[in-house]
Computed example of a mutant assay.
Amino acid sequence: MQKGKVLTLEDRIPKLKEQRRKKANRRLTLLLFMFFILIAGVIYIQSPLSHVSSIEVNGNSVYEDTELVRATGISDKTNIWKINKEKAAGQLEKFPEIKNASVKLVFPNKIEIAITEHRRIAYLAKNAGFYPVMENGKVLPGNKKESLSENVPVLMGFKEGKVLDEMCSSLLSLPEEIYNSISEIHYTPQKTDEFHVSLFMNDGFEVSASLRTFAEKMAHYPSIVSQLDPNVKGVIDLEVGSYFKAYEKEGEEGLEEESEG
Rank of each mutant, 00 (worst) to 15 (best):
K144D: 14
K144I: 14
K144Y: 12
K145Q: 15
S147E: 15
S147M: 13
S147L: 12
S147G: 02
S147A: 15
S149A: 11
S149D: 15
E150A: 13
N151L: 13
N151S: 13
N151R: 12
N151I: 12
V152L: 11
P153C: 05
P153D: 08
P153R: 05
V154N: 08
V154C: 10
G157H: 10
F158I: 03
F158V: 04
F158L: 04
E160Y: 06
E160F: 05
E160P: 01
E160T: 03
G161P: 06
K162W: 11
V163C: 01
V163Y: 06
M167T: 15
M167K: 05
C168G: 00
C168Q: 00
S169N: 15
S169K: 11
S169H: 09
S170H: 05
L171G: 00
L172R: 03
L172C: 02
S173T: 09
S173Y: 06
S173Q: 12
L174C: 03
L174Y: 03
L174M: 05
P175G: 02
E176C: 00
E176N: 07
I178S: 00
I178F: 02
Y179F: 12
Y179E: 02
Y179H: 00
Y179C: 00
N180F: 09
S181E: 12
I182K: 00
E184H: 08
E184Q: 08
E184D: 11
E184N: 07
H186C: 04
H186L: 09
H186E: 10
Y187D: 09
T188N: 09
T188G: 01
P189I: 13
T192Y: 13
D193W: 04
E194C: 04
F195R: 06
F195G: 00
F195D: 06
H196G: 05
V197F: 07
V197P: 01
V197D: 04
L199Q: 04
F200H: 06
M201A: 06
N202M: 08
N202T: 06
